[in-house]
Amino acid sequence: VGLKPFFLFYYILSVVLFLVALPLIIILSFKQKYKESIPSRFFLFKNPPFKNSQSTWFHVCSLGEARALKPILDRLDEEKIVITTITQTGQDEAKKYDAEIRYLPYEMYLPFWIKPQKKLIVLEAEFWYMLFVMAHARGAEVILLNARISDKSVDKYMKFAWFYKKLLANVSILYVQSEVDKNRFLALGAKNIEVIGNIKLAGEIKKTYDYMKPDCELIVAGSTHPDEEESVLAAFSSYKSANSGAKLAIVPRHPERFEEVYSLMEEFALKEHLSLERFSQNKNFTSDLILVDMMGELNNIYAISDIAILGGAFRDDVGGHNPLEPAYFGCKIITGKHFFHQKELFKYVHHVQYVEATELNAALNAAKELPPSMVEEKIDLQKVIDKIKE
């Protein structure tokens, strides 16, 4: 990169921000959730540059995007693949592929860390200026895949349109999720944009184990966040008084919350005279309430559930979770109104109830009259595969 004034200014700013944030970075690195990712990203601990150069490089943020790569990587078996992630859950998922895996270092390291690669394919909204500029400068063709700009963040992007124009100048083609996204990227000065839909529609949805369905109604609250469990339990309490056979399984989004959610359920079970079990202890559904305290079980439980209450959308700061899985297994889906990160996916899912947390009991009752949720659309990835291989 010829040392242009803006590049130099941005680089110095990234160093200054690093120094200012250093105490916080050090404190956070002791948290279980970050104990691998922060040392790798901010101190390059066990995070050297890729051994392979001239590979196809995918950059994803976390678990969902890492998983979305599968149908693409399955069709690139001849290619050398390298992958960077931001989060530890993304890293763990990426390790399942036949690829060299790293954490993406903080921006000030990238000019020294990036090796020449054939292509850099960046998923969704991972817009790092140094990543785009340096990968492009070292000869990689930069492609945005599944690109989106959510309703919630569109104003922020437009305020900094001048900055995104510089960043997007390094991109050769954008594959976006919708016409709305296309227009937003055009407004930011992007060129060569194609609407292909959401690549998550191409993912294979499968279960890893067949559990016996209890011979009663099973409600699952999947991927729940703080405060959502209380609302679900309160709604279940009213519902159970009229539907005595119903059972409720709760699957918190983050494993570090298992104990906290169990305590909450224990308190509730005592008060309501209900039985409670941990799924990890006997893996059956004999109690009224079940805490699913194991990772990777959600699809297996959707497969035997009647109603799925999909978490992450009853509070305004998460943005909802993927509805394709419960829809695939024919659950009747109830979710909140704050599903802004999943808006594109919800467009493809029919018969969903969108309610406030206080309306959950009414939604459970209404579910009796509704058909199961279903997904209609499919996506063709051929165009993307051809582009990556060329």
Rank of each mutant, 00 (worst) to 15 (best):
Y10G: 09
Y11Q: 11
I12L: 13
S14A: 15
V15L: 13
S29W: 04
S29V: 15
Q32P: 14
K35H: 11
E36I: 15
E36G: 13
E36A: 15
S37C: 07
I38D: 05
P39R: 01
S40V: 06
F43G: 13
L44H: 13
N47M: 01
P48A: 03
N52C: 10
W57K: 08
V60L: 06
V60A: 08
C61E: 11
L63K: 03
L73H: 03
L73F: 07
R75Y: 05
V82L: 00
T84H: 01
T87K: 01
T89L: 10
T89G: 02
D92A: 08
K96T: 12
A99K: 07
E100Q: 13
P105V: 03
E107T: 13
P111E: 02
F112V: 13
I114A: 00
L120T: 10
L120V: 12
E124S: 11
E126R: 11
W128F: 08
F132Y: 09
L144Q: 10
L145Q: 11
L145M: 11
S153W: 12
M158K: 15
W162A: 04
W162E: 05
F163C: 09
V180H: 05
K182S: 14
L186G: 10
L188R: 02
V195Y: 11
I199C: 03
G203I: 12
Y209I: 12
A221S: 05
A221M: 03
G222T: 10
S223Q: 04
S223D: 01
P226L: 02
D227A: 14
E229G: 06
V232F: 00
V232I: 02
V232R: 03
A235N: 00
Y239Q: 09
A242F: 13
G245W: 09
A249M: 02
A249N: 06
R253S: 02
R253C: 06
H254C: 01
V261A: 07
M265W: 00
E267K: 14
E272R: 15
E272M: 08
L276F: 00
N284L: 07
N284P: 09
N284S: 14
M295I: 15
M295P: 08
A303V: 12
G311Y: 00
D316R: 11
D317W: 05
G320F: 06
P323G: 04
L324V: 07
G330P: 05
C331L: 06
K332F: 04
I333S: 04
G336L: 03
G336E: 01
H338V: 09
F340R: 00
E344G: 04
K347G: 07
Y348S: 05
H351Q: 06
E356H: 04
A357D: 12
N361D: 15
A363K: 05
A367F: 03
K368C: 08
E369C: 03
L370C: 05
P372I: 02
L381V: 08
I388E: 01
I388H: 01
K389N: 09
